[in-house]
Design a protein around this nucleic acid. Structure first.
Lengths: 168, 168
DNA sequence: GATTTTATGTCAGCCTTGTTGACATTCCAA
DNA sequence: TTGGAATGTCAACAAGGCTGACATAAAATC
């Protein structure tokens, strides 16, 4: 929100040049590849894809979540999500229970098998994140999260913040 | 590389808890969606996809690059890249010239039309990046780039660094 | 109580973008 | 001259997005 560079000091704005912005763009591109590389390998071996990982992650993250809630977090269509959920339910990784208060809803949870895969995936992804965090230190990590948060769409920031408040 | 937290001070390691790592993971997920949202909208209107954007970006970035070089940066198969390049060449956005030194190679450049689209895409993406950078300040941006760079696969870091050295 | 809205599931079909495999061409280099 | 490298192209396939249409059950509203 606030422009933290003074109005007179031009040298304080040097981090906003097009060259620096392009470097930031390419950093996002290359880093995201690394970010997904390890889970992708594991998923590939088991016949799943990134979409399954995302579903598994957020079900683990918000146990008992409904399909609609998952849709708004993932930002895909219900048909797309349904295809993924169907295979996870059929394979016994996800359990779908009719809601008690509202019987139209389905509450989603990971089964023991689902939790196992989730652990395998998030261990791999966390390992890389941990290494990167350790290499760069807490101040860099704080900046990393600030910039990423500022880059989100506002509705996604809501999801992110809600999760943050709930657990951290 | 070096663990910057002391071996005895536990409180300095608090940024490495699983909860913080998970927050970093979700920050990457939600931020990447924002990162690609604006170009995706523009591309969708013109019948292109993210793959076209990536090709356009790195051709602009490294004019006269060969197909093979582009392949190693983008990390896809030549068939996949070829399909994208073909549409861009047919639509007059990319020019492919037989190499002079080695006539097997094709040197890729953007045409004036291609440069126009590239400007439109990167302006949109830079706007978001600039806003995020300005909101968070130079120290946060430095941390952002450090962490992202540490998260890359080493071969991708090579590409990233090479581009960095060449132009920044 | 009847009607409308909501949550979900499902079927069919389309698109982009990734994959593998096979094969042709061109041309540098040993 | 022959082998291999760089590129192009064709075919087939899969994942995972999308839209549209329709069914069902249940909640909400009139």
């Amino acid at each position: 929100m606030a422009d933290r560079s003074g109005p007179q000091g031009n040298e304080t704005l040097l981090f906003l040049t097009d060259e620096h912005l392009r470097k930031g763009i390419e950093a996002m591109f290359f880093a995201y590849r690394g970010f997904t590389a390890d889970p992708d390998r594991i998923l590939g071996e088991k016949g799943y894809g990134r979409a399954h990982h995302r579903a598994i992650h957020f079900i683990k993250r918000t146990p008992g979540t409904t399909v609609n809630n998952l849709l708004s977090i993932l930002g895909v269509t219900k048909q797309s999500l349904n295809r993924v959920l169907r295979t996870l339910i059929d394979d016994g990784l996800v359990q779908s229970e009719v809601g008690t208060r509202d019987k139209r809803e389905r509450h989603l949870n990971l089964t023991e098998t689902g939790l196992e895969l989730e652990r395998e995936l998030s261990n791999a992804q966390r390992d890389r994140m941990r290494t990167a965090f350790r290499q760069t230190g807490p101040e860099a990590v704080a900046g990393f999260r600030q910039v990423l948060e500022a880059m989100m769409d506002s509705d996604m920031r809501r999801h992110y913040a809600r999760l943050k408040d709930a657990e951290v």
